[in-house]
Nucleic acid binder design. Structure first.
Length: 839
RNA sequence: GCGAAAGUGGCGGAACUGGCAGACGCGCAGGACUUAGGAUCCUGUGGGGCAACCCGUCCGGGUUCGACUCCCGGCUUUCGCACCA
């Protein structure tokens, strides 16, 4: 079974000689070599007449090698791509490597190997495994994000955003490990501690580069309606963008001098000069009459200016305490804390004085970084007000309540509440009141209606080594100067000491020879930007590059791009449902607006594949449940492994990996092999077998485009069971089309059998088998017979049989007729399916 | 807490638009051919009952001639997001 040596010797009984069996390793080696020699998978980019771009998310080439999760995704894409090729399209299925980033860098640090050595070795290993998997990938057009020929154009994309005013610098908080002296990504912080050394992580404010993706929020949201994407993905994007309508309300901060009886004379220097104003965002302007205090985030720029002398120590102590927390802990800590600033504002609706507090439950990055607190109708404000004894007012009543019903908890329902204790607005339903109150405040110049987004600008700075240097130069005379395009790429220098230090700036800053450059504008001494960019920028445009790989003069060629993009089909994991896909869409829109692209959405169709788990859990090294594809390639062959992975469950849902089921798939392929090998051309093919075959051709042709691979495989198995029933030897016409059907799943085997059947060209150039509806038609159908809704039996009739005919057949069947004890009240007849006699 | 998806035999999973629940595969049991079988083939396999039949798609209601599928309420699981004002 596992080798190609004939298993029966010539001297075996009856002179029967078992011909060569199915040896996957030999077959797969042969076709790998043949495909390579013929350049069978190379796409004619320029000459293609019916281009079809079948893209899969490119992998991060980890040192552990190809993960089954990767293989599952790639196989699913490959089947789709090969199917389209069998339909006669010119399919382009490229692959590349997303190899920059903190993950690679940390791994390199751990091993003590430089990433510039490590990454090529990993890529070589990945490439070997991917070739072994039999993917129809065009290896002449791969992309490696860490190669200067690629990141030159990543830097170019940055410059395009800078030109358009969409790249800017501002201070932002990062996670900082005081022990490792390094900036950490959110995923490197575990329970407030550094994942490597366990030290408590702090926040640090650093100047960082951002992309103004928020300018595109509305368009990113609106375009979703036009895309053929998995619904879960669209929903995730919508909630990530997080559009909410509300009002921005202004609160004047009272000058402490005006505060009757105050002794706070010394604070005048800070506060006395002119009226300070706090702007808040709220989705509930209707509750303005219930606002009893105002809270600003500890990072709010006005906090110092509005803090009174007496409260200074408390406020700065509080702010220091907040900044000592890492970004995650800050957001998960539920216990409310905060301090009074010593200032007051006026409620524009009631004219009442309201204290201004600072508290970390208000986040600087959302809205305006300040809120009006309405403890009666917001859970968080209620909790805070209760803890600090601040007033709680009811301004909305639910059904059965009145303005004096006590509030035991915040009443947050905005569905069928009506306003109360709100003067002229009393009795108005909440929904209606939102607009009316906003208009009223607007007329008093105290507010305006606004739309706010949860989405915030994209921080692309990384104070790290392993990424493309951000192509900017700082000159004392000229300011921030973009690196001229002719000077790209800004090469990442090969430095041995790439480990981050306690400076909070990239290791590149330690290399004067790299860091010091003449200003491109005036020639005077200047300094390079030492931050590198986020990996999401690398992956945000790679799909534009593939068809133009090899062009060194442009990022992507205009005519080629017009021909091949947008991507026809994109398949990838839902873990990238939000960031990668959103950033790619954003960059596409920007490049469209800049005149480089004719389309503004990159992926016409996107489907998220599921995840492969094992023993009910994600595969991970720590759990020891990782599957190494090499073992399965060697033991079962790539064709069996591919087909098995697709048979596990619905492609878009993933499945539970277990060794148990793989033998069934292997035996299916082996049996197909035997039937094809032994097929004959004597006489005519069997009518019933041909019917099943054509039903299968239809079914597989319908299921593959739906990515319903598991049911396609089941259908082919059924068909083969019919072909081989009772040890039948197949007629050639019965199995030949099956070789074409199975080709997307088991490409090596299909090629071998196709050749065995006498063809000289590749099975992938043979087209999809023709479906003959006449052959697929059933002569008879089995109709379920119910009496009073209970199934009592079946009758076999012609597909054209009408109700009367079927009823007659039913009455002729004593086993069913005995249940029909009276005169039928009603008979329900569904042609070809069911007859229900209701008594 | 919010959002999304999902609960079907011993197991992975099928089931069109509301129309025979359990396709296909694994596993299990029996058999054929064999020196042999991890090959191939045949038969059986949701539960109960000798049988006629009865019960069965997370739980409880409902709509319908008919519900895995639709509606209402609840439970559980997985995955996102998480003090979003």
């Amino acid at each position: 079974m596992t080798d190609s040596v004939p298993e029966n010797t010539p001297g075996s009984p009856e002179g029967f000689v078992e011909p060569a069996g199915y040896d996957p390793n030999a077959v797969e080696r042969k076709w790998r070599e043949r495909w390579a020699a013929r350049a069978a998978n190379r796409t004619d980019i320029a000459g293609a007449r019916r281009p079809f771009y079948a893209l899969m998310m490119f992998p991060y080439p980890s040192a552990e090698g190809l993960h089954v999760g990767n293989l599952f995704a790639f196989t699913g894409n490959d089947i789709y791509a090969r199917f389209q090729r069998l339909q006669g399209l010119d399919v382009f299925q490229p692959i590349g490597f997303d190899a920059f980033g903190i993950h690679s860098e940390n791994h390199a640090l751990k091993l003590g190997v430089h990433p510039m050595e490590l990454i090529p070795a990993n890529i070589a290993n990945f490439t070997r495994q991917l070739e072994r998997a039999g993917l129809m990938v065009d290896w002449s057009r791969t992309v490696d994000t860490t190669h200067p020929s690629y990141y030159k154009w990543t830097q170019w994309v940055f410059l395009k955003l800078l030109e358009r005013g969409l790249a800017f610098k501002k201070k932002a908080a990062v996670n900082w490990c005081p022990n490792d002296k390094t900036v950490l990504a959110n995923e490197q912080v575990e329970n407030g501690r550094c994942e490597r050394c366990g030290a408590l992580v702090e926040q640090r404010l650093l100047e960082q580069w951002f992309f103004r993706i928020t300018d595109y929020a509305e368009r990113l949201l609106a375009n979703l309606d036009t895309l053929d994407w998995s619904n879960t993905t669209k929903t995730a994007q919508r909630s990530w963008i997080g559009r909410s309508e509300g009002a921005e309300i202004r609160f004047r901060v009272l000058n402490p001098l005006e505060d009757a009886g105050s002794a706070a004379v010394h604070v005048t220097a800070e506060v006395g000069s002119g009226a300070q104003e706090i702007r808040v965002f709220t989705t509930r302007p209707d509750t303005i009459f219930g606002a009893t205090y105002v809270v600003v985030a500890p990072e709010h720029p006005l906090l110092d200016a509005i803090t009174s002398f007496e409260q200074r120590a408390a406020v700065s102590e509080y702010r220091a305490r907040t900044s000592r927390q890492d970004l995650i802990a800050r957001k998960t800590n539920k216990e409310k804390t905060g301090v009074f600033t010593g200032s007051y504002t006026v409620n524009p609706a009631t004219g009442e004085m309201m204290p201004v507090w600072t508290a970390d439950y208000v986040l600087m990055e959302y809205g305006t970084g300040a809120i009006m607190a309405v403890p009666g109708h917001d859970e968080r404000d209620f909790e805070f007000a209760t803890k600090f004894a601040l007033p709680i007012e009811r301004v909305v009543v639910g059904p059965g309540e009145n303005s004096r019903t006590p509030l035991r908890e915040a009443f947050v329902d905005d569905g069928d509440g009506r306003l109360c204790n709100s003067e002229q607005f009393n009795g108005i339903p909440v929904g209606e009141a939102k607009g009316l109150v906003t208009d009223w405040l607007e007329s008093k110049h105290a507010a305006k209606g606004v739309v706010n987004y949860r989405l915030h600008d994209w921080c692309i700075s990384r104070q790290r080594y392993w990424g493309p240097p951000i192509p900017v130069i700082y000159c004392d005379a000229c300011g921030t100067v973009p690196v001229p395009e002719k000077d790209l790429p800004v090469l990442l220098p090969n430095i041995p000491d790439f480990k981050p230090d306690d400076s909070g700036v990239s290791p590149l800053a330690r290399h004067e020879e790299w860091y010091r450059v003449p200003c491109p504008a005036c020639g005077k001494p200047a300094r390079r930007e030492t931050d590198v960019s986020d990996t999401f920028l690398d992956s945000g445009w790679y799909f534009l590059r593939y068809p133009s790989v090899g062009r060194d003069d442009v990022a992507f060629d205009a005519a080629t791009t017009k021909k091949w993009l947008p991507v026809n089909s994109y398949i990838g994991g839902n873990e990238h449902a939000v960031l990668h896909l959103l950033y790619s869409r954003f960059l596409t829109m920007v490049l469209h607006d800049a005149g480089y692209l004719e389309f503004d959405e990159p992926f016409t169709k996107f489907r998220a594949h599921g995840m492969i788990i094992r023993d009910g859990a994600k595969m991970s090294k720590s759990k020891g449940n990782v599957v190494n594809p090499d073992d399965y390639f060697d033991g079962w062959g790539a064709d069996t492994f591919r087909t098995y992975l697709m048979f596990l469950g619905p492609f878009e849902e993933g499945g539970d990996f277990r060794d148990a089921g793989i033998s069934g798939v292997k035996s299916f392929l082996t049996r197909l092999w035997i039937s094809a090998r032994d097929s004959h051309t004597n006489g005519e093919p069997d009518r019933d077998v041909m019917r099943k075959l054509h039903q299968t051709i239809r079914k597989v042709g319908e299921d593959i485009p739906k990515l319903s691979y598991n049911t396609s495989i089941a259908a082919m198995m059924e068909c083969l069971n019919v072909v081989r029933r009772g040890e039948r030897v197949a007629h050639r016409a019965e199995v030949e089309p099956m070789v074409q059907l199975v080709a997307p799943f088991a490409p090596h085997l299909a090629e071998e059998l196709w050749e065995m059947l006498g063809h000289t060209r590749s099975v992938f150039d043979s087209g999809w088998p023709a479906f003959d509806a006449a052959l697929a038609t059933q002569d008879t159908v089995t109709i379920a017979v119910q009496v009073g809704g209970k199934t009592r039996g079946t009758v076999v009739v012609s597909p054209e049989a009408g109700e009367a005919e079927v009823l007659a057949a039913v009455m002729a069947d004593a086993g069913i007729a005995k249940f029909i004890t009276g005169t039928p009240k009603k008979v329900i007849f569904v042609p070809k399916r069911l007859l229900n006699v209701v008594l």
